[in-house]
Amino acid sequence: MTDTPPAIPAATLVVFRDAGDGPPELLFVERAKAMAFAGGALVFPGGRVDPGDHALAAVLGTGDAESAARIAAVRETIEEAGLPIGLSPMPSPTAFARMRAALHAGTAFGEALTDAAVGLDLDALEYFARWRPAHAHARIFDTRFYLARLPAGAPEAQVDATENVRLFWATAADVLAEADAGRATIIFPTRRNLERLTQFADFAAAVEHARAHPVRTVTPWTETRDGVEHLCIPHDLGYPITSEPISDAVRG
């Protein structure tokens, strides 16, 4: 059995904003070009699962890696995009602004939640995918992807202007078109997940699909097909496109 290099646990959140007359819009952030991983790429809000996320999961009585990843996805979306996903009850605008500022200042997430008198609703996140590349790279992330609906009454999303330089709402198809035209950069896992997300007319359809395809960790592999080396993923996880010439793949 081939050993795979160590990976950094991470979590990311695909936030849906349903549109009545078209496909749902998703929240994207553009990473700063100076970032070591996926610099300049369009991604979903997210980041590393920190020790504090595990500590908070233990306080909540779970303590498992899955709960810690959900907590990280909620925390990172607050920090990066200023959206209160997975909080209950919804904090007032003033309380939420204080919470986000406290997180940016280094306050532990659990303490910030207590100060705002809110708790976590981790069931608001739907487990969608898990990706763990194995290619030689400076940083490899073991990333859980979650889906969530933008709550009614949520504030406008606001970029943190640190790791990310802008954020915007767009359909999955629109971002794929921008990447194909050379106007945007998306890495291989993001492209495959966007292709999968184009299949859904709304958030409910995405959740139904996710529940019909139990998550299995995706570790892409290389394979020669008709003389061309491809980067490949399994065929049975709900992805409509499961390979791409490795010369075209953006790997972070």
Results as ranks from 00 to 15, higher is better:
residue 168 F to Q: 15
residue 215 V to S: 10
residue 217 T to P: 11
residue 210 A to Y: 10
residue 195 E to S: 03
residue 197 L to M: 11
residue 12 T to Y: 07
residue 108 A to Q: 15
residue 166 R to D: 10
residue 5 P to H: 09
residue 134 A to V: 11
residue 148 A to M: 09
residue 91 P to Q: 14
residue 125 L to K: 07
residue 89 P to C: 06
residue 2 T to N: 11
residue 71 I to R: 00
residue 133 P to A: 10
residue 74 V to D: 03
residue 203 F to G: 00
residue 226 D to C: 03
residue 26 L to V: 02
residue 167 L to W: 10
residue 29 V to E: 12
residue 52 G to E: 06
residue 108 A to K: 10
residue 156 E to H: 10
residue 203 F to Q: 00
residue 59 V to A: 12
residue 159 V to M: 01
residue 202 D to S: 01
residue 111 E to N: 12
residue 70 R to S: 05
residue 123 D to E: 13
residue 26 L to Y: 04
residue 98 R to F: 14
residue 131 W to I: 09
residue 125 L to H: 08
residue 252 G to E: 02
residue 142 D to K: 02
residue 17 R to Q: 11
residue 218 V to R: 05
residue 25 E to H: 15
residue 26 L to K: 01
residue 157 A to E: 07
residue 241 I to F: 07
residue 109 F to R: 00
residue 206 A to C: 09
residue 250 V to C: 05
residue 169 W to S: 01
residue 156 E to F: 09
residue 117 A to V: 06
residue 33 K to R: 14
residue 213 H to F: 11
residue 67 S to E: 12
residue 26 L to N: 03
residue 169 W to L: 05
residue 134 A to M: 08
residue 231 L to H: 05
residue 146 Y to A: 07
residue 118 V to G: 12
residue 98 R to Q: 14
residue 228 V to A: 02
residue 102 A to N: 03
residue 62 T to E: 15
residue 116 A to Y: 13
residue 70 R to F: 04
residue 182 G to N: 06
residue 248 D to F: 08
residue 196 R to Q: 00
residue 58 A to F: 09
residue 181 A to D: 14
residue 138 A to H: 02
residue 91 P to C: 12
residue 157 A to Y: 04
residue 172 A to Q: 00
residue 102 A to T: 02
residue 70 R to E: 03
residue 31 R to H: 04
residue 170 A to C: 12
residue 191 R to A: 13
residue 207 V to E: 02
residue 72 A to W: 13
residue 95 A to D: 15
residue 13 L to S: 03
residue 39 G to K: 04
residue 190 T to Q: 13
residue 190 T to V: 15
